[in-house]
Amino acid sequence: MDLVIIFIGAALINNFVLSYFLGICPFIGVSSKITSAVSMGIAVIFVMTITAVVSWSVNNLILIPFGLDYLTIPSFILIIASLVQFVEMVIKKVSTAIYRALGIFLPLITTNCAILGLALFASMREYSLIQSVVFALGAGSGFMLALIIMAGIREELELANVPEPFKGVPITLIVAGLLALSFMGFAGII
């Protein structure tokens, strides 16, 4: 039950993009087409889950027992950077089809603050290993959901008559604001 709450909480109620403002750059950058939004979403879920496992292990098995908490930030960022590189290499070897679909999005993920945010939140809330993994899956799905909804709206927006200075990023932000308002309705679920 506890795990269900963590999942729904991370995916809908405290959606990473719409209520924590994590991962705004890819949210604005990659949300103009539904197909690329799906690819980016899958890549993020994938990297997030692995990051959750590795960062939990490093934090609880190395940093905390040896009293090295002050190294949390550099070690998390190094973990994410090397993990993304590693995942990219593995995918390239295993399947060229997946690599072609996700290829360009993987390097972008390194600087996606949603990933580092996930690792930091999980360590701040002192989640267990399983809780962290569920949290990562929830946050990743929430990110993908927001990205896909946004991409759908933006495809329609291309045809809309938007005032000249508001074209592009400004109108995207305003739409995101309205989306955030509607996501507030999920707060009643739990």
Binding site: P163, F166, L173
Partner: peptide, 24 residues
């Protein structure tokens, strides 16, 4: 709404729009 996440998006969106208009 201004202190909720939605307010942040909308305010920044409007500010960016005005900044663009000013530049033009």
């Amino acid at each position: 709404v201004m202190i909720l996440p939605a307010g942040a998006f909308i305010t920044l969106g409007l500010l960016l729009g005005f900044a663009n208009a000013f530049t033009k």
